[in-house]
Each structure stands twice: as C-alpha cells, then as structure tokens.
Nucleic acid binder design. Sequence first.
DNA 1: CTTCAGACCTGGTGGC
DNA 2: TGCCACCAGGTCTGAA
Length: 283
Amino acid sequence: MPELPEVETVKSGLEAAILGRRLTDVDLQRPDLRWPIPPDLPDRARGTKVVQVRRRSKYLIINLEPVESLILHLGMSGRIRIDKIDISGAVLPASQSEKHDHVVFKFSGGVEVRFNDARRFGMLDIAKTVDVDDHPLLRHIGPEPLGNSFNATYLGDRLESSRTPIKAALLDQRIVAGLGNIYVNEALWRAGISPTRKAGRISSRRLDQLIPHIRDVLREAIQAGGSSLRDHRQTSGELGYFQHTFRVYDREGSPCRTEGCDGVIRRIVQSGRSTFYCAKCQR
DNA sequence: CTTCAGACCTGGTGGC
DNA sequence: TGCCACCAGGTCTGAA
C-alpha cells in the first residue's frame, strides 16, 4: 500500500492525535506481523510519553520518553486507524474492533490507535531512541527524496556504473528512500525517461530534470492525502485522492497525457512488478 | 558486488 | 454461485 506520501499522511494524523500523550498500554492481538513482535514491547512502552512522531523512508518512528522508540512499517496493506476526537478533545465514537486489527495502542485521554494489516507484511519493533537510525532495517536506507542531500550530483554518482533499469534503481531504497511503484512510474513519465533505460546511461542533464519531478509528484501526493487504491486510508478513515491524478499508473491501454503525444500507455513487468509508461514520449 | 526470482499473506476481480 | 488464476502502494533472502 504505502509509499512515502501515504506514510507521510499517516504520520501527520498520528502526530496530531498522540503527540504529548502518555502511552498507557499496548495490546498485541497476535505475536507477529511479518516478524515476531518483541514480547516485551508492551512492558517497555507502557507509561512513556510521545515526544515526536517522524517518518524515515516508509517507516514511522514514534519517539517515547524517556529512552525508547517504536518503529512501524505498513507493508502493503497496513493501516493506522485513530478514534475521532472532537474539538474539546473528547473521543467521539467508542472504537470498534475490525478484522485484522493486530495491535492496539492506548493513550491518555482515551485515544486508541489501531494497527490493521490484512496481509501482515508490516512490522513493529521497539529500540532505544539513540539506536534507531542504526536499526538493521534502517541502516542502509538512502537519502530522503525531499531533502537537500538528494541532488543531481549524488544521483549521478550513485547511478554512474549501474546497468540496472532506472525503474529498478529508483525502487532501490539504498539509492533513494521512500519511492515505490506508483510514484516511480509517475516521475519517470513526467521526466520523459523510459523505465527500461539503463540507469548509468542517462545524461546528467536529464537526471537533473528528474529530481524536481520526483519531488513534485511526492509533494502533490502528500497534499492529496496519498493515493487510495485498495488499502490506504488516512488515520481518520478518509480516502486519499491522488489516484485521480495518475498519468500512467494503472492506465494500460489509455491515451498518453503528454501534450501533443498520441501514444498509448503500456504495461510491462520489470523485476516482477508492473511498469506503466508511454514508449512514444519516454526515451 | 549486482541482479532477480521467490517467498511471505490475504483479499478483490474477472473469466468460465 | 462457485472455482480458479491472477493481481496488488513492500522488501528480505538466497541463488546465480
């Protein structure tokens, strides 16, 4: 489900609901998601206070004082659901349990946060806050695409000797963090770059142009609350609506939307995943 | 080292 | 309606 914009959307909802609150309990409805959840996680988390909610790549990190942090990944189908809170801070409806609610976090003020994940490709871990960026799953992740260190010089250096298709390179989280199948397809279409082109065979001028297209599509998607295809929901339960803005993703057989292009969007499979592009205007 | 198929898991869709 | 094949916002693992 979630790429950077979806996770960022969830992050914002979570932050608004739990920042500054005390975590009073964690209910594990099952012992594992993709991997076992540390059985001592509830004991380590209980009684702490949320001092920061952040996103790193597609991971959510909840910094709990005094020393621990929760690390969550939503996998393909993960959702975070939060009770609605009215303007006076009161919790509106009593929260209903749903199928695949695997973890329930309870906070002061009666706020409940549910981690629902049908496919269970998600993960939940706890680590000392000082060790979070060294966590085995986070250690090798590349720069944030919306940050300054993701620039043409960096990307050029990183792709210079790569013979892999640019589509696969951009999905590699060690090269750039947070991109997934939708936004890579969309960014390459905007940049007019063929997804099959070898990453090392793209001129620095074109890489230079690709970067703002990646940033733009991500920012626009965040603005729209992400893309809701099957599973993604904002924490309030509302849908994201960036899917209405797709130019290539899931548009096989439809006309290319490039000004003056009469091409048709094609679907191919690259390293086991669907790629959508226009062979006419993406070179 | 790089690259890629396979694995993990559930649910929705479309064809017959 | 039922059954089945195929598809899905991810990413780790192991093999070549």
